Computed example of a mutant assay.
Amino acid sequence: MLSEQAVPVVRATLPAVGGALDRITERFYGRLFDAHPELLRDLFNRGNQANGDQRKALAGSIAAFAVALLEHPDTRPDALLSRIAHKHASLGVTADQYKIVHEHLFAAIAEVLGEAVTPEVARAWDEVYWLMANALVALESRLYQEAGVDDGRVWRPVRISRRHEETADTVSLTLTDPDGEPLPTFRPGQYVSVRVALPDGARQIRQYSLSSAPGSPAWRITVKRVDGDPAGEVSNRLHAHAAAGDVLEVSAPFGDLVLPEGDGPLLLASAGIGGTPMLAMLGHLAATGAERPVVVVHADRSPEAHAHAEELRELVGRLPQGSLHLWYEAPGASGAHAGRADVTALELPAGTHAYLCGPLPFLRAVRGDLLASGVAAADVHYEVFGPDLWLGAAA
């Protein structure tokens, strides 16, 4: 909670700070990487820095947190904080790094806003920063404890025991412990980070959902080649070079978009590679004999582009109250619907909890349709692959 002195200052300066956040975050990252080039080389996603997505995500998170402090002073925006904390934990972020961020972020604020940053304004926004930072440090410390590791020490070697070509641009990698021990269990829907050495010496990190059900002694991730500018450094290297027998550095499992317990009805809606966490959820439901109603929606470019399509059909077929609805841009003779997914055409039981994963336009469209159909906003949960440019929208 902000102090009584800080509230009016933050409220009065929020429009100016919010309007300048893009310039502030651009200057912040410039200062940070000049002082600590190893952070860009080995921690931050260079692709997201190049296209500006990380800058936008940071600006969005700061603005969303400040607004939450003003509009809901007696509560904490846990949905926002949890998502960030899980991502940070999967990267091995530690408490001391928040001091480095503070130094360069506040220097950037002073440079961009100049004389408008009076000592009173600086103190008020310092409160905002440390309220957010300390909350994240506490959440991340708890996540490390739950994972059974020391703060930041999330990495372990795993061996690729199998590589399987799912589609022309997608491969699945089965991961096992090099010593033959079972890998730690995880909650269906979680992801791991993979740290890969690149030809220029960088060790870049990316997150991949665990696409197999918990309980197996092995893990499985599914990697899609990422074209474009910038192309996917890590995904493309794994897609091109990862082979059975190779050893990878992988984090403990994290992620807060996880299958809820109970017997209430579910909607699992995904698009493209966003279908991978849904496979883990469905695998768990099938393995445990779940009888709850489960409506599964998936959208993709074509039947040939749909990774794990047969596995998806098999898993849904094992659920007594499961139903599968497919939409393809080019369905051919598959029998799927043509065009974008339309959840308004489905009959969803009362009390349905929806779990969405896929590109941002898909998430926005499906969430909007669900809200218009009467699904409560609190019952719609989402996962974005990459920087969350929609922070707070589905909280």
Rank of each mutant, 00 (worst) to 15 (best):
A147D: 00
H36L: 12
A135G: 14
A20Y: 09
L319C: 11
R318S: 15
H164N: 06
A290T: 06
L2H: 06
A147V: 07
V250Q: 07
H284N: 13
P320N: 12
E310D: 15
A147M: 06
T25E: 02
I84W: 00
A307R: 14
H104F: 07
P15R: 12
V112P: 07
V194M: 05
V192A: 06
D150A: 15
L183E: 03
L210N: 06
R225M: 09
V192Y: 04
F33Q: 11
E314G: 11
G189W: 00
P119F: 12
A305R: 03
R367G: 14
L198R: 14
E26S: 15
Q190F: 06
L348Q: 06
E310F: 10
R23Y: 11
D126S: 15
N51A: 04
G368S: 02
R367V: 08
R237M: 12
W130F: 02
S211R: 07
L266M: 07
A269G: 01
A89C: 09
D78V: 08
V9Q: 03
V250H: 05
L80R: 09
A116G: 14
S141A: 12
S3Y: 09
E329P: 04
A110R: 15
A242C: 01
G180D: 02
L81D: 00
S334W: 00
P182W: 04
P230E: 02
L113W: 03
H239G: 12
P157W: 11
A299L: 01
T222N: 08
F362G: 08
R313L: 13
L363C: 05
S235R: 03
H164P: 02
A280F: 03
D342A: 13
L267K: 01
E311H: 13
R156C: 07
P37H: 10
G332V: 00
F44L: 11
L143N: 10
T13P: 01
L14G: 08
S90Y: 03
F28D: 04
G19H: 02
L173K: 06
H381F: 00
A64W: 07
W327C: 10
N48Q: 15
A95G: 07
G274C: 03
N51D: 06
Y355W: 05
P293Q: 04
H239I: 09
S235N: 03
A338Y: 03
E347H: 14
A377D: 10
L324C: 00
L91R: 08
M278L: 11
A305K: 04
P230M: 07
H284C: 13
V128A: 08
G114Y: 13
D22M: 10
E181I: 06
P331W: 07
V137F: 05
V250G: 03
I62H: 10
L175D: 01
F186W: 04
W327G: 11
E347G: 13
L389H: 09
L285H: 05
D179E: 14
I205A: 01
L198N: 09
H337D: 10
V158P: 00
E115V: 12
L312W: 10
L136V: 08
F65M: 11
E261D: 05
R41Q: 15
M1P: 12
T118I: 06
G189N: 01
A107T: 11
P260C: 05
P265M: 05
G18T: 01
T344K: 08
A35I: 07
H353Q: 14
E249L: 15
T170V: 15
H353N: 10
